[in-house]
Simulated scan of single mutants.
Amino acid sequence: MNEPTVIAILLCTYNGSAYLREQLDSFIAQTHERWVIYASDDGSTDETLDILRQYQQRLGDQLVILDGPRQGFARNFLSLIQNPAVKGDYFAFSDQDDIWLEDKLARSLAALRQHSLDGPALYCSRTDLVDAQGRHLGFSPYFHKPPSFENALVQSLAGANTMLINACTRQLLAATRPGAHIVAHDWLTYLVVSGYQGVIVYDAQPTLLYRQHHTNLIGCDSSLRSRLTRLTCALRGRFSEWNDMNLALMAMYKPSLPQRNRRILEQFEVARRSPLLKRLRLLGRTGVYRQTLAGNLSLLAAAVLNKL
């Protein structure tokens, strides 16, 4: 008889005492009961560690507390991915202030198990946006276009807090070189899995309540004002900086990528440093795209203004 599937929940904390109990309670309420929380704290000065220790007394071996590298949220998550003491069959990223729906792990696992998982695999979903008091605000955007490497090169698909990955994906991410600059671990995960033509399941049904509040490191504001702000940042060079970081990370994977995706990656790299007409021609050959019309227009504007 096969052993039950164990999911390692990778929880990164930093001064998250305000909402941490609700997050932890939502883990305990999961219908999939075989999980272990690995909580990496990045030097909290509030009651976060006290709360974790209280829950550790209750959960025992199901909650492991670790010291984070104190180099930002992305490096903290990567430290968990690279830690050999973190054990599991699958791995779920978690924020410190959300509320998981009770079937989050079960639904994520069932969705991936519908596919042959010989290589890397990723499940992700939309989110139900709530305010600091848990009141419904709306939903994260629904993306209609298929997940792909062409999309991943210019856009992250979903929040890490919705993601479940298999052991193969974990192994690939763990190979990231020490000291690497990471835009976001969700984007890196999407790039790596799509780059190796792995299984990607994007679920239109939310799996968690994603809390929007003033201390969020990354929010999900889809208002017109927020979109214009992001466009302005992109045209000022922020998008170009992100691409620099992502391409530097992908350099170590490039030799082992499937030939098709290796060619797309190389064309994208050449396009970014080419004169305007050649840049636009090569960009067209790559087939890169974003999920929305507004996103593709901003991508075109960045290309024209040499801000790729």
Rank of each mutant, 00 (worst) to 15 (best):
L257Y: 04
I218Y: 15
H214Y: 08
L191F: 10
N216A: 05
T232A: 12
H213G: 03
S148M: 12
Q212W: 11
L172P: 08
Q267D: 00
L208F: 02
Q197M: 08
D203V: 15
A174S: 13
L164P: 02
F239N: 01
A175G: 11
G219Q: 10
A175M: 04
P206F: 05
P178R: 11
P146I: 01
S226E: 01
F149T: 13
E241N: 14
S223V: 02
D221Q: 08
M250A: 03
C233Y: 04
L247T: 10
N261T: 11
V192P: 10
T229R: 11
L208V: 05
R225D: 07
N261D: 11
M163R: 02
G198P: 00
T162C: 02
N243T: 15
M245P: 01
F239T: 03
N261E: 12
L224S: 05
Y196S: 11
T189C: 08
L231P: 00
T189F: 08
A158F: 05
N161S: 15
I200T: 15
L247E: 07
A160P: 09
P146F: 00
D221N: 14
L208N: 06
N216Q: 04
S156P: 00
A175W: 01
H214A: 12
N166R: 07
P258L: 09
R225T: 06
Y253Q: 09
Y210R: 11
H181R: 14
W187T: 09
G219D: 06
R236A: 06
R177Q: 12
T215E: 03
I182L: 08
L208T: 00
G179W: 14
L208H: 04
